[in-house]
């Protein structure tokens, strides 16, 4: 689907967006607008987190309301190791990935025994649990969070303290994640996951043990989001329980729905629109949420396929 649509409105919109994202550091360097670079670094990281949520929510039909938990787990893996004097990214990042995967395995194994509202509530409950555990870790700042004094050290391979290098790392990881998701959803595995979203009973009747495929998908998504968490902690030089709060999970869901559920680049559009609007509106008024809320509601109600739907993507229904 990636290839066929390159010349459509949608293909062009995606190409332009990627080009602008690729050139943003150049613009920022030329104009001295550091703020744009900072904002868009954050956008890329949230786009990665939203893309990972889209894998289970958009393609898999698993409405996880606790996805921000992995942002926190990835972030705390980096923060705690840094705090304990282990600054090497070659240690921090594999740990972030492994712990996220393990957490997703446990949460998924339990919550995937339920469906619908129960699934939403259980994933939410686990994320809130992670939030309170983090808030209770007195050694690591508790409620106030943990400052990271030194960014992940990749032994000269890449310097995360360099804003431009860090931006491009986020950009490349985002593209890699989207490509990975593209391969996954079109593979046999992806067909099973999407079949289960479409009609799970029928999948079981024709002989697919859907649970183990859904669980695997859930773990992949959690792991990808854990990487976004490691990036986010490095970006802010700080990690706190707030990163896992349920409103953050809600933001990720909004990005996915806004961009278009089950659309490869939808989460990128969703993250850009949500975070840019948030930024703009908050400059005009401190009540920006009162304006943003209804706006999002309108987009979701009237453009059912989200932004990618407006661009002409056919959605499943």
């Amino acid at each position: 689907m990636m290839k066929q649509s390159l010349l459509s409105v949608r293909g062009i919109a995606i190409a332009i967006m990627l080009l602008l994202l690729a050139l943003l550091p150049v613009y920022s360097h030329a104009t001295g607008n550091i703020f744009a670079l900072t904002l868009f670094t954050r956008i890329l990281i949230y786009a990665l987190a939203a893309a990972s949520l889209n894998l289970i929510m958009g393609f898999g039909g698993m409405m996880s309301f606790g996805h921000a938990a992995y942002l926190g787990i990835g972030g705390y893996a980096v923060g705690i190791l840094a705090h304990e004097g282990i600054a090497s990214g070659f240690v921090q990042w594999p740990v972030a990935i492994a712990v996220s995967a393990l957490f997703a395995l446990v949460i998924g194994a339990l919550s995937l025994r339920t469906r619908g509202v129960y699934f939403i509530m259980i994933t939410l409950a686990f994320a809130q649990m992670a939030y309170y555990i983090a808030a209770g870790m007195a050694r690591y700042g508790g409620d106030d969070g943990l400052t990271i004094y030194k960014r992940s050290d990749f032994a000269g391979l890449i310097n995360l303290s360099d804003k431009v290098q860090f931006y491009y790392l986020c950009f490349v990881l985002l593209l890699a994640a989207i490509y990975l998701i593209y391969r996954i959803v079109n593979s046999r595995f992806g067909m099973v996951v999407q079949g289960a979203r479409s009609n799970e009973k029928r999948m079981q009747a024709i002989g697919f043990p859907t649970y183990r495929y859904q669980l695997t998908c859930f773990v992949i998504a959690g792991t990808l989001c854990g990487i976004a968490g490691a990036l986010l902690a490095n970006n802010t030089d700080f990690v706190s329980p707030a990163i896992m709060y349920w409103t953050r999970s809600g933001d990720l869901m909004v990005m996915v729905i806004l961009g278009g559920m089950g659309s490869l680049f939808g989460p990128v559009f969703g993250a850009i629109v949500l975070l840019v609007l948030e930024e703009l509106l908050s400059q005009f008024t401190e009540y920006w949420q009162i304006i943003l809320g209804p706006m999002l509601l309108l987009i979701v109600l009237f453009a059912r396929g989200g932004i990618d739907g407006m661009l002409g993507r056919r959605t499943h229904d």
Partner: peptide
């Protein structure tokens, strides 16, 4: 999908089905 159900496990993540 019905064919795939009888073609071994589906833990194949890369090749386009």
């Amino acid at each position: 999908l019905a064919v795939q159900a009888h073609a071994g496990h589906s833990f194949r993540f890369w090749a386009p089905a």
